[in-house]
Design a protein around this nucleic acid. Structure first.
Lengths: 196, 196
DNA sequence: CGCCGAGTTGAACTGAATCAAGAAACGTGG
DNA sequence: CCACGTTTCTTGATTCAGTTCAACTCGGCG
């Protein structure tokens, strides 16, 4: 049996039979994505849910004004996909790019359908993922509505302490919805406060 | 057979057997919610998906600073719920309040589980709803990140032309993430532009 | 060594918030 | 159905968080 991290991830989350997980591990693909290259680009239709074995991905889009918006980061043990493209079978508007050399485990979405009949837990697992995703999006909307740039940054480093070092500041600022200059100033302010 | 609007809504969306829909219609409750009263309040656990037969609901939350944030409006033919509370069976932080005298059709969430075995279309219907919800949330995040107050308002009146008249401006402004004063000024500007 | 992109810093600017005060709309009780 | 008080909306003056633009620093890499 292949020993991907996803194996333990799934076992922990689902309490599935080992042979079912192994079956999945055998059917799905491991992909290597070199730093700065792309897993998904606009126009493509996203067919997989990607589980990050190692490395770091970012998901971003470019708006009508040509501005880049980082919507998600996915370090090891995270899942990432474009639910919209995947489910509605439409071309995506998203980029998914590797910020570090990354190994992903690509779960073909069909797999969920196939397995559904075999194991009820597995289909409800996908529903769980959808609900967790909704939760995160909701939280982010509320943070954009109610917090200042500084508060959003503090929340970011609290939530993802290790990522702060691995993601360029321009991308973090874009995720937070502020300019790189503003983030730089926020960081400076915080450093000064901390020194006292 | 009861003639709720939801009947035609479901028929249009699902192509279900008439008797299945009727069964649902008989098993679920119609609730009347008087203007300004609440369907859901924080602390309660949300157990239903509400389909609005007639009237208008709003969903909002109050943040740590005591500020109110309108997250959703649901006029006739819309569905509304707190997915988080519903799925994880946790107390909600949301208010769902009637802005007009409203009639809702309350689908007990268990119903989806029960019906799942009987009709596969029905369970995939719920998944469809989840994906549509994710889509809306994603769009809203992007609009908060990339559009000005005026642009967001223009998008709002374009998307929900009739709602603009039925929802107090304070609530629209809160939905857009701006102050009531700013919205008033934005409207004034637009009226002047339009006059020319 | 010298270039180049990322990050920092400064100064001027601006969109939106805040505070305050007036006008209009609303519903409640007489 | 009107009168009154309360809330909502508007308008103005001022302030502020964050943007923009431009110049500078620093660290990595060919």
């Amino acid at each position: 049996m292949k020993h991907f991290k996803i194996t333990s991830f799934l076992t922990a989350n689902l309490d599935l039979d080992a042979d079912l997980i192994e079956k999945m591990a055998l059917n799905c693909n491991t992909l290597e994505v070199k730093k700065n290259s792309y897993l998904i680009e606009p126009g493509q239709t996203c067919k997989h849910i990607f589980f990050v074995e190692s490395g770091l991905l970012r998901q971003y889009t470019i708006d009508a004004k040509g501005k880049e918006h980082n919507l998600n980061f996915a370090p090891e043990n995270w899942l990432i996909t474009d639910r919209n493209s995947l489910f509605f079978n439409e071309p995506t508007h998203m980029f998914i790019q590797a910020l570090e050399d990354t190994t992903v485990f690509a779960l073909n979405d069909d797999f969920f359908d196939e397995i559904k009949s075999q194991d009820y837990k597995f289909s409800s697992f996908n529903t769980l993922l959808l609900h967790k995703h909704i939760n995160r999006l909701q939280q982010r909307i509320i943070s954009l509505l109610s917090w200042s740039a500084e508060e959003r940054y503090l929340d970011f480093i609290k939530t993802y302490p290790d990522l702060t070092m691995r993601i360029p500041q321009t991308m973090i600022s874009s995720y937070l919805g502020i300019t790189p200059e503003s983030l730089s100033r926020v960081r400076k302010e915080l450093a000064q406060k901390h020194k006292k």
